[in-house]
Amino acid sequence: MNSGTTELAWFKSSYSGSEGDSCVEIAAAEQAVHVRDSKDVSRPAFAVGRESWEPFVRFASER
């Protein structure tokens, strides 16, 4: 799902380094959370349904 991702407000985690290496950016939209590679924003982003995003973040933060 890459449709319309250029007008989204993208941001990186506050835990990301300033060098821009090995990071992803996210943009929250009404229906989904979009994810892309911050090193190469020309590559397609993908989207995760909002109902799936919170359990994913909770799982990842427990690691």
Rank of each mutant, 00 (worst) to 15 (best):
A47P: 06
E7I: 06
V57E: 06
S13R: 05
T5P: 00
I26K: 06
E25L: 02
A60D: 11
F56A: 08
V33R: 02
R43S: 14
F11W: 07
H34S: 13
D40S: 09
M1S: 05
P44M: 07
S61F: 06
S38L: 05
E54H: 12
D40E: 11
G17N: 11
E7L: 05
E25I: 01
F46H: 09
V57G: 11
S16G: 01
K39M: 09
G4K: 05
S13I: 02
D37P: 11
A29C: 07
K39H: 08
N2T: 01
P44K: 10
S52H: 12
H34K: 03
C23L: 04
E25R: 01
V57D: 02
A47E: 10
M1D: 00
V57C: 08
A9D: 12
Y15Q: 06
R63N: 13
W53M: 03
W10A: 00
S52K: 08
T6W: 00
S3K: 12
S42R: 09
A47N: 06
S18P: 14
V35I: 09
E62C: 14
E19F: 11
C23D: 11
E25Q: 05
N2D: 06
N2R: 03
G4C: 03
F11C: 04
H34A: 11
V24F: 09
F46I: 15
K12T: 13
A9T: 10
E19K: 10
S3Y: 08
F59T: 13
S52P: 03
F11I: 00
A47Y: 02
K39C: 03
I26V: 13
S16C: 08
V35T: 01
A32S: 10
A28L: 12
D37W: 07
R50W: 02
S13T: 03
R58W: 12
W53F: 04
R63I: 12
D21K: 09
R36C: 01
E25D: 01
Y15N: 03
V48T: 06
A28H: 13
S18V: 15
G4H: 04
C23V: 04
R50L: 09
S61H: 11
D40M: 03
S3W: 10
V35G: 06
S16W: 07
